[in-house]
Design a binder for these strands. Structure first.
Lengths: 143, 143
DNA sequence: TATTGTTATACTCTATAACTATA
DNA sequence: TATAGTTATAGAGTATAACAATA
C-alpha cells in the first residue's frame, strides 16, 4: 500500500509540476495570474473576506496575499471596504467586473486548458480528470 | 461538451495551483526542488542528454535548465562529460547518488505527498489519482 | 550561419522581519 | 498583548538579451 502511495506521489509530482510550469508561461499575457485567479475564485465562492482570512485559507503568508489583492483591486476586479465594527479589518469583495472575468473564463490559462481538453481528450478522460480535481485539492490541504 | 471542458479546466487550475504552492513550501528544506526532481527524473528515465535537449523536453529555456543542472551537479547527483564528436555539447548523466535519491524518494515533497496519500486517501481514491497523473502530464504537453 | 552553453539582468511568487494602527 | 494590514528585503524559478566557442 505504501509502495503504491509512493509511486502515485512520484507521478503526481512530475505531472503537476509540468502542468503548472506551462500554465505560468501562459499567464504572462493573460488577464489573471495563477495566484490572482485562486484568490478571486475563493472570494467569489465564499463571499467577502479579509486579507488575513484569505491568506489562511490559501495557505500563504498575509504579505503575499496582500500583494495579490492589491493587483486585483488596481484592475477593479475586487473592491475594499473597512469593517465598521473592527477598524483594523478591511473586507474584500468581488466586483461585477471580477465576477464577469471568472464567469467567462476570460484568462489565458483557463482558455488554453479548456481548448486543450476539448481538442485532445475523450469524454471518459475528461471524466477521470474531473474526478481527480477535488482529490488533488484535498491532497493540497492534507500535506 | 465545451462547457464541461471549461469547468474541468477551472477546477484543475485551482487544485493543481494549490498543490504546487504547498509542495514548493516543503521543498525549501528538502533534498530536491521541483525543477531539480523533474530534470533528474527525466535524465534517469531517458538516459544521458545535453542541457539543450532537456530544456526542450521540459519546455523551459536553456538558461533555466543550465541553472538547475548546475545545482544538481554541485551536489554530485549528476555528472557532466564532453561529447568527443561535438565539442559544443556537454552530456549530463545521473550518478549513483542521484539514482539513489530518486529510488528512495528521499526528498521532502515526495515523502510528504506519499504520507498524505497513505494517511488520508482510500485505495479507490489512490487509483483515481494514479489514473489522472498521466492525463495531467499529457495535458501539460498539449497546451 | 546555426547551435551549445554561459553570463547578466529582470520579473513573478513567495517568504521573513519590522513597523503602524486598532482591539 | 494580540491581530490586521503595510513596507522592506530576499530567495527560488523562470524569462530575455548578449556573448563565446564550436559546427
Amino acid at each position: 500500500m505504501t509502495e503504491d502511495a509512493h509511486s502515485v506521489a512520484a507521478r503526481l509530482l512530475l505531472s503537476v509540476g509540468a502542468l503548472v510550469r506551462r500554465l505560468r508561461q501562459l499567464s504572462v499575457v493573460g488577464e489573471l495570474s495563477m495566484p490572482e485567479r485562486s484568490a478571486l475564485a475563493r472570494l467569489d465562492r465564499c463571499g467577502p473576506a479579509t486579507s488575513a482570512a484569505l491568506a489562511r485559507q490559501e495557505q500563504i503568508s498575509p504579505q503575499s496575499m496582500g500583494t495579490t489583492l492589491a493587483a486585483l483591486e488596481e484592475r477593479g476586479l475586487i473592491k475594499r471596504s473597512r469593517d465598521p465594527d473592527d477598524g483594523r479589518q478591511i473586507v474584500m469583495a468581488v466586483t461585477e467586473a471580477g465576477a464577469e472575468v471568472l464567469r467567462a473564463g476570460r484568462d489565458a490559462p483557463a482558455q488554453a486548458l479548456a481548448a486543450a481538453l476539448t481538442a485532445s481528450f475523450s469524454p471518459s478522460e475528461l471524466r477521470d480528470l474531473a474526478r481527480a480535481a477535488p482529490l488533488i485539492e484535498r491532497l493540497a490541504g492534507a500535506i
